[in-house]
Simulated scan of single mutants.
Amino acid sequence: MATARAVIDIRRATRDDLPQVMSVMTAAFDPQYGEAWSESQLAGMLMGGAARLSVAYVARAPAGFALTRTVADETELMLLATHPDFRDQGVANALLRAAMDDARADGAETMFLEVRRGNSAERLYTRNGFANVGERREYYRGNKGQVFDARTFRRALI
Results as ranks from 00 to 15, higher is better:
residue 70 T to M: 05
residue 65 F to R: 03
residue 120 S to R: 15
residue 118 G to V: 08
residue 62 P to S: 09
residue 134 G to C: 06
residue 134 G to F: 04
residue 134 G to K: 04
residue 102 D to Y: 03
residue 123 R to C: 09
residue 133 V to G: 05
residue 99 A to H: 01
residue 68 T to V: 09
residue 136 R to M: 10
residue 108 A to C: 12
residue 73 D to H: 03
residue 74 E to T: 11
residue 101 D to F: 05
residue 110 T to S: 12
residue 102 D to R: 05
residue 133 V to E: 11
residue 82 T to V: 12
residue 114 E to M: 10
residue 106 D to M: 13
residue 94 A to P: 08
residue 134 G to V: 05
residue 62 P to R: 06
residue 96 L to I: 02
residue 121 A to Y: 04
residue 122 E to I: 11
residue 102 D to C: 05
residue 61 A to R: 14
residue 65 F to A: 05
residue 136 R to G: 10
residue 70 T to S: 14
residue 129 G to L: 09
residue 75 T to D: 01
residue 105 A to K: 08
residue 107 G to T: 01
residue 83 H to A: 08
residue 61 A to G: 10
residue 121 A to T: 03
residue 72 A to Y: 01
residue 73 D to V: 04
residue 135 E to T: 15
residue 102 D to A: 13
residue 127 R to F: 04
residue 82 T to W: 01
residue 107 G to I: 01
residue 107 G to W: 01
residue 124 L to W: 06
residue 90 G to W: 00
residue 109 E to Q: 12
residue 114 E to H: 12
residue 84 P to N: 02
residue 94 A to D: 11
residue 103 A to V: 03
residue 94 A to S: 14
residue 87 R to K: 13
residue 126 T to H: 07
residue 126 T to G: 06
residue 74 E to C: 10
residue 122 E to Q: 13
residue 120 S to Y: 14
residue 78 M to P: 00
residue 131 A to Q: 14
residue 113 L to D: 04
residue 105 A to C: 03
residue 102 D to K: 03
residue 111 M to W: 05
residue 121 A to M: 06
residue 110 T to Q: 13
residue 126 T to F: 06
residue 81 A to S: 09
residue 88 D to R: 15
residue 101 D to G: 08
residue 73 D to F: 02
residue 66 A to G: 10
residue 69 R to M: 14
residue 91 V to E: 02
residue 71 V to S: 09
residue 122 E to F: 02
residue 102 D to E: 15
residue 119 N to G: 08
residue 63 A to Q: 04
residue 94 A to F: 06
residue 92 A to D: 06
residue 72 A to F: 05
residue 70 T to R: 13
residue 99 A to K: 01
residue 114 E to Y: 08
residue 100 M to N: 01
residue 76 E to F: 02
residue 84 P to G: 01
residue 126 T to Q: 14
residue 95 L to M: 03
residue 72 A to C: 05
residue 109 E to G: 13
residue 86 F to K: 01
residue 70 T to H: 04
residue 82 T to A: 12
residue 121 A to D: 05
residue 117 R to T: 15
residue 136 R to K: 14
residue 95 L to R: 00
residue 132 N to R: 14
